[in-house]
Design a protein around this nucleic acid. Sequence first.
DNA 1: AAACCGGGGGC
DNA 2: GCCCCAGGTTT
Length: 420
Amino acid sequence: MLASVSRSHPQGVGVQLYRRALDGSGRSMPHSEAEGDDLQRLVDWYQGAKRDLPWRRTDDPYRIWLSETMLQQTRVETVIPYYHAFLSRFPTVGDLAAAAPDEVAKLWQGLGYYARARNLHRAAQQVVSKFGGVIPSNPEDFSSLPGVGPYTAGAVLSIAFGQPTPAVDGNVLRVMARFLGIADPVRQPAVKRRIEAVLQAWLEQDNPRVVTQAVMELGATVCVPTRPDCGACPLLAGCAARAAGRQTELPVKSPKPRKQKVRVLALWCEADGQLLVQRRPAEGLLAGMWQLPAIEMPVASAEQGLAAAGPPAPRDDCAVAELLAVLSGRTRQPDRAEVESNGWLVELAVARHVFTHLEWEVHVLRPVAWTGHPDQPVPETFQWVAMADLPQLVWPRVYERLLEQLLRPFTAVRASAHLP
DNA sequence: AAACCGGGGGC
DNA sequence: GCCCCAGGTTT
């Protein structure tokens, strides 16, 4: 198929595309002929250069689907141990469908973007209930599953089922933006559509299982964000960005907004070998995960440049007093003496944690005068838990670290010792 | 279209 | 410190 494609325009077309894109002058011209050899070289390169990854050793759609889900916004090295642990516990989609939600969450602990796990679990149940336990191989059905967006659908359908469905992830976006010389912001849907169209043409000319992975592999190992190794690139001949010497300037991305800083005041309430913990709301940040009883106080934007860190302020004492009142089942506001009394909070630890869109500074405080006890009732969402049982709960990374620090020499909080 | 949703590794 | 990673969902 590809061998018959002519080799008429070694590099001219790519340069032209780059200039046109820079001028913002609209549609690209067809580029099938000049890229035929590029595609062939890409495929040949992949066969010899591909990394030996666990999900490349199987044809099982379930395993490939799991890998694509775990790999969303997550590095290969991070995923590998989770991938093995997950499959060890849930070898088939049916096993996953039959699992308890908390057990699925526990195996995802530390991986981030926890909605992925909830969606995958629900999707597995739908595979059983709607598709007889067989992962659907047609785009409409597979894309209907929760957590399956355009990328995941394209990736699984092409890699596991050999269909010519393009999968555009961050790697592919970068490779194609450079190869085609696209100077428009890659966020724009029009850019993604154009890249999908070119990629689909490639998929229809060669084995989709190979082409999809080849482009991604190129972006992951050669056409990397900084210092791309153009000398080793199979697409060098047709690359518009390289021809213009501007490969490091692409892709063009829009600037990100500043992170909101949040001061988190978390309480260490321990009594009778038990610890008071709190379950986060079922929706939103870190949904349904466990933490120390805490209040989150957004730091005013004016203060962000100043001492966002630092010792608890008077306002913090007041907020903690209110939380302690709630824990004690009292409805009245804490009195002046409680709030103003000195030295009633001992700071046991501080941890900073950065999310995509905000930043936490967690202070773990021990209210030395508080007399709460496991025998007394606590409001909903709070719970006394034996120290030894803490590892069974699902913790956000920052609390995992804090607990490990504060519980030493107690047992670890991780699900499995071999995870990072 | 923009905001929300984790965590980590490389520089 | 900044970037960005085999993205999806919600508003």
